[in-house]
Design a binder for these strands. Sequence first.
DNA 1: CTGAAAGCGCTTACAG
DNA 2: CTGAAAGCGCTTACAG
Lengths: 324, 324
Amino acid sequence: MSTMYDVAQQAGVSVATVSRYFNGGYVSPAAREAIDAAVNVLAYKPNRIARTLSNKSSQIIGLVVPSVTNPFFPELARAVEGEASRKGYQVVLCNAEGSIEKEKAFIDSLTSSFASGIISSTGNCGDYYEKNGIPVVSVDRELGTGAPHVTSDNYFGGKIVCEHLLERGCQKLAFIGASVESTSQRYRREGFFDKATQMGLPMPALFTADETDEYQILNKEGEQLSVYDGIFAWNDFAAIQAIRSLHQVGVNVPQQALVVGFDDIHIAKLYTPSLSTVAQPIYEMGRAATELLLRQIAGEKLQGVTYLLSVSLIERETTRHKVV
Amino acid sequence: MSTMYDVAQQAGVSVATVSRYFNGGYVSPAAREAIDAAVNVLAYKPNRIARTLSNKSSQIIGLVVPSVTNPFFPELARAVEGEASRKGYQVVLCNAEGSIEKEKAFIDSLTSSFASGIISSTGNCGDYYEKNGIPVVSVDRELGTGAPHVTSDNYFGGKIVCEHLLERGCQKLAFIGASVESTSQRYRREGFFDKATQMGLPMPALFTADETDEYQILNKEGEQLSVYDGIFAWNDFAAIQAIRSLHQVGVNVPQQALVVGFDDIHIAKLYTPSLSTVAQPIYEMGRAATELLLRQIAGEKLQGVTYLLSVSLIERETTRHKVV
DNA sequence: CTGAAAGCGCTTACAG
DNA sequence: CTGAAAGCGCTTACAG
C-alpha cells in the first residue's frame, strides 16, 4: 500500500499539497495534474485511520440495535445507512443482543474510534452514552437522557387497534407483550388499555410471548389465550406466534378470534392469513434519526427534541371477519 | 478524554511503561499499581485508532453480506460475531445491498482501516478482494478466487428435496429461484434437477421469485405455478411467496401441492402451514468461516480449502400430505 | 499557491 | 524493568 508520501514523491510536490488535493484546499492546476497521475499510477487510497487520528473524527456513525433477528432493526439499519451515506457518513451496525456488557463495549469502542455520533434503539445504558459526551439520538426506544428521540406514535397505535377490534365486534381483549417491556411496548399497551377502559370494557388480559422457546404464549394467571376474541400483539412476530398457538388448540383466526400485530414487517402480508398490523414509517424513522444526529454533530443543541411519527392501521385477513 | 500521556504523568512513569502495562510487557509491581490507580482516576480507555495506526492492524474483521432483510444473513452475522469476539476480534457488518459499488467502497474502507480480514458472502468482487491482499474467506457464495470457502451441501440438499417430493407422490416438479443465480442457488437447483432426471422424470419447470414486487412468481414460459404438485423454492422466503401465490389462486398447500424451502429461518416453523425445508447449520458455517479467517490471519496458507457442511431435511406441514 | 514542521495517541526497538 | 525517541499516515496552522 502506497502512502501519501509516495504520491508526493511521484508527483514532485509535498505531502501537504497532496493532502490539500484530497481535502479541497488550494492546489495549482499543474500540481493537481501531477497528483492525479501519481494517484493513478500508485493506485493510492487515503488511509482512513491516519486521517481519523489527525482529525479526531471518523465520519462514522454507530447504530446500536438490541437484536438483528427482529426484522424491524435490519430495516431501520437500511434507512439509516441510506441517509447517512448520502451525507458522506458510514454506519457501523452494533448488535447488542440484549447484553448490557456488549453494549458498553460498543460504546467504548465507538468513542475511542472517534465515531461522529451514535444512534441507539436499545433503550439501555443511557448514562453510559451520556458520559461519553458524543452526540447521541435514540430511535424507537428511549434512553431517558433527554437525547433527541424519534419514535412512532405507539400510544395512538394501541388506541386504533382497540377501536378496530371493537368495531369488529370483539368483546374479550388480550394484549401480548415481550417479557421485558420497552418504552415502545408500554405505550402500545397503554393506548390499547386506555381505549378499552374508556369504552367501558374490562381491562384486557396480559400475556407474554416467550422469545426463547418456540411459539409459546404465557400468562401469569393461567388463563388461556383461546378465551379471547380480540388479540393485540406488541409486534408482528408475537402476533404470528399467537396465531400459531391458537391454531394449535383449534382456534381459527379470524373466524373465532381476531389478531393485530405491530410493525408491518415483510412477512406480515405473506403470512396466511395475512396479518392486520400497525405500520410504522420505518424508513422515515431512520431518516429522521440520522438527520437529528447530523444536526447535533454540526453543533445544534437538540436536547429534549422528540419526533413523533404517525402510524396507520393496515387491515388484512386476520381481522377481516366479524366476531359474533 | 484522557490519553496515555496523562496516565503516565499521573502514575509518574513513561508512556512506554503504560503501553507495556496494556500490552503485557514487563512492568514492575510498583509501577503496575500506580498505573492501575491512574487509569481509574482518569477513567482512561486506550484509543483504538492510535493503536491501530501504530500496529497497522485493527483486530477488526469485516463481514460483507448481500442483504440484511433475508434473515439468513443476520443469523450468520450472529455466529461470526460470537466466534470472533471469543477470539478478541470485533466484527463490522457491511450490507452491500446488491450493489457492486457499495461493496467495493466497503472493501476499500476495510482495507484502509487495517481490518485484519474479511468474510464475504456476496459472491461478487472476487478480484477486488484479492487485489487488496488482505485475508479473505467466503461463506455461502463463492468468490471464485480460490479463497477458503465454507458452504453447506447445497447440491445434496437439492437432491433430498427431490427424493422427498417423489416419495410423497409428486409428479410435476417445479423450482423457484431468484432472478440472479448465486452459486448456492445453482447447486440447489442442480441437485434437484439431476435427481429428477435420474429418476426418469422430465426436467422440472423453472420459476423466478420477484424480490422487488409483492409475492409475485414469474415464469418465462408463462406456465402457471398451480400446474405443479411438487415445488422446491431456493429459500424459505421464496417458498412462502409460492404458498401465498397458490393460496391466491385457490390451490391449497399441502392438499393439492407440496412445497419445500431452504434455510430453516425462524419463520419457517411459525408459518401456517409450517414449512418443510432444508436446514443449514448456520451457526457452524459462521464459526467455521471465522476459524478459517483467523488461521489465515495467523499466517496459514489456506488457498483452495473448502468446508462442505451437511444439511438436513426438516419435514413440516407443507409436505405432510400425500399427493395422489 | 506551497513546504517544513509539529502534532494526533499509540507502539516498539534500542540503550541503559 | 524502564525511558527517550522514532515512527505509523495523515492534517493544519504558519511562513513564505
